[in-house]
Amino acid sequence: MQEPTASSNSGGGAGGVRARVLAELRDAIIRGDHPPGAPLSEVTLAETYGTSRTPIREALKQLQVEGLVEIRSRVGTFVRRPSRREVVELFQLKEMLEGLGARLLARRGQVPELDKLRRNVAESELAVARGDADEYARLVHDFHGVIVQGADNTRLQNHYRLLMNQLAYHRLVVSTLRHPGRLGASLHEHRIILERICEKDGFGAEMAMRDHVRASEREVMADPVLGASGTSAENGKEP
């Protein structure tokens, strides 16, 4: 969703700046530009985004509500590192939401989202052949997003968007796709999901998606860095 800008907010320039800063800072954290545990200086961010510290401070407060940052009184603000338990719980929700999305999309029959998924898988095959994990990670994000969008359920989309922000999933995907064999395995799982959706097999599509999410979770939890978040998250210390 495109956030309004100051130039498009007649009489509401400050609101436009706040929305821009919030959206861009959120995206930067999710992409991994600011890694877990990294400090977030209001002064530095204000210089980066060309604004005063007020919209930066407001954006950080909102991101704390969303679970992406942690504001510690008299210490500073840091990118929040979810605990191992939180990652597991978020993946459990992801499995349910995306499984539901695949089932609902399969029931809709021939809709435009199917062509988008077919193109996505075709492009993914090229990315895997090149060993391009970064490009494939982008396509993974789009693949799952199209399925949720194609489910045609506004409540599902809203919950899913918040979940993905909290999980910072793109950062996780980029790391795990560099595991040996994961690129090809992930692509194979996407093909199966697409096949079930095209066959209008709602139950099969849901089960295939759930299997795929669980496989992704196993890769994350097996990663010595990504899966090691534990008490260090609560203490705010690097592992």
Rank of each mutant, 00 (worst) to 15 (best):
M1T: 01
T5V: 07
A6K: 04
S8D: 08
G12F: 00
A14L: 02
V17Q: 05
A19L: 07
R20M: 02
R20V: 02
L22S: 03
A23C: 07
E24Y: 11
E24S: 10
L25Q: 04
A28D: 06
I30F: 03
G32L: 00
G37P: 05
L45R: 02
E47Y: 02
R53A: 00
T54H: 08
I56E: 03
I56H: 01
E58D: 12
A59H: 01
Q62G: 02
V69S: 01
R72E: 05
R72H: 08
T77R: 11
V79T: 00
R80F: 01
V87D: 01
V88H: 12
E89M: 07
L90N: 03
L93T: 10
K94N: 05
L97H: 13
L97M: 00
G101S: 03
G101V: 03
L104S: 00
L104Q: 12
R107G: 14
Q110M: 05
E113M: 08
R118A: 09
N120K: 10
V121S: 05
V121T: 14
E123D: 12
L126Q: 14
V128G: 00
A129G: 11
A133S: 08
R138H: 09
H141P: 03
D142K: 00
F143G: 12
H144L: 09
V148F: 05
D152H: 11
T154E: 15
R155E: 15
N158H: 06
L162H: 13
Q166T: 08
Y169Q: 11
L172R: 12
V174Y: 09
V174W: 04
G181K: 08
L183E: 09
G184I: 07
L187N: 13
L187E: 13
H188R: 15
H190R: 11
I192H: 15
L194T: 00
L194R: 06
I197M: 11
C198S: 14
K200H: 09
D201S: 04
F203I: 14
G204P: 07
G204V: 07
D211K: 07
H212V: 04
H212C: 01
R214G: 14
R214Q: 15
M221Y: 10
V225A: 15
G227C: 12
A228K: 14
A228T: 12
S229G: 06
N235Y: 11
N235R: 15
K237G: 10
